[in-house]
Lab assay of single mutants.
Amino acid sequence: GMDVRRLKVNELREELQRRGLDTRGLKAELAERLQAALSGPSSG
């Protein structure tokens, strides 16, 4: 899988935006949010 901790802030935001998620917050928050999205149930 993707290691969200290795991504830069702008990369985290890009991935979040692609999934329609909130791109605001600290890098740690963005990484946590993206990780949750990646490990969560895949819809679609």
Rank of each mutant, 00 (worst) to 15 (best):
G1H: 14
G1E: 10
G1Y: 08
G1N: 12
M2K: 07
D3V: 10
D3W: 15
V4S: 04
V4T: 05
V4Y: 07
R5P: 05
R5L: 09
R5D: 06
R5G: 09
R5M: 10
R6K: 14
L7M: 15
L7Q: 02
L7A: 03
K8S: 15
K8N: 15
K8P: 05
V9I: 15
N10W: 15
N10S: 14
N10Q: 14
N10Y: 11
E11W: 07
L12V: 02
R13V: 08
R13T: 04
R13G: 01
E14L: 14
E14S: 12
E14C: 15
E14M: 15
E14R: 15
E15W: 10
E15A: 09
E15M: 12
L16N: 00
L16T: 00
L16G: 00
L16F: 02
R18G: 03
R19Y: 04
R19M: 09
G20R: 04
L21K: 04
L21Q: 04
L21N: 02
D22N: 12
D22Q: 07
D22E: 08
D22Y: 04
T23R: 04
T23E: 05
T23L: 03
R24Y: 06
R24K: 11
G25S: 01
G25V: 01
G25N: 02
L26W: 06
L26S: 15
K27W: 15
K27Y: 13
K27H: 11
K27F: 11
K27E: 09
K27Q: 09
A28V: 08
A28M: 07
A28K: 12
E29I: 08
E29Y: 04
L30W: 02
A31K: 07
A31D: 02
A31G: 04
E32H: 11
R33F: 02
R33W: 03
R33L: 03
L34T: 00
L34E: 01
L34G: 00
L34I: 02
L34M: 02
Q35E: 09
Q35N: 07
Q35C: 15
A36M: 10
A36L: 12
A36I: 09
A36P: 00
A37T: 05
A37N: 05
A37W: 13
A37S: 06
L38V: 06
L38K: 03
S39N: 13
S39E: 09
S39I: 10
S39Y: 12
S39T: 12
G40V: 11
G40R: 13
P41I: 13
S42H: 11
S42Y: 08
S43Q: 13
G44W: 14
G44L: 13
